[in-house]
């Protein structure tokens, strides 16, 4: 990677639900340029029990030979 700029804005939709739209602009070492955009959400169902979802899309054409959609869904209990 040569350089990149990433940004997100996270805020409480309700008391226990946080949403964060996010994006990144990247210039790779080969001077190819691409954008990624998506969101992450965190729902604390009860205290210390989080359902966290991260879904993104990378704007890459076929020549990159990569997947466009990526992310994860996470259940986590913190103590």
């Amino acid at each position: 990677m040569k350089h990149a700029v990433a940004a997100n804005y996270y805020f409480n939709v309700t008391e226990n639900f946080i949403l964060a739209p996010q994006t990144q602009y990247t210039v790779a070492s080969n001077d190819k340029v691409f954008w990624e955009a998506g969101f992450t959400s965190d729902w604390e169902i009860v205290d210390d029990f989080h359902v966290r979802t991260n879904i993104n899309y990378a704007f890459l054409d076929d020549s990159w030979n990569q997947q466009n959609w990526f992310g994860w869904v996470r259940l986590e209990r913190d103590f």
């Binding site: 990378a58 997947q67 990526f70 992310g71 994860w72 869904v73 996470r74």
Partner: peptide
């Protein structure tokens, strides 16, 4: 600590 169950998909 924590215990996590996660499903990943895709990847650039």
């Amino acid at each position: 600590g924590y215990v996590r169950f996660e499903t990943k998909f895709g990847g650039i």
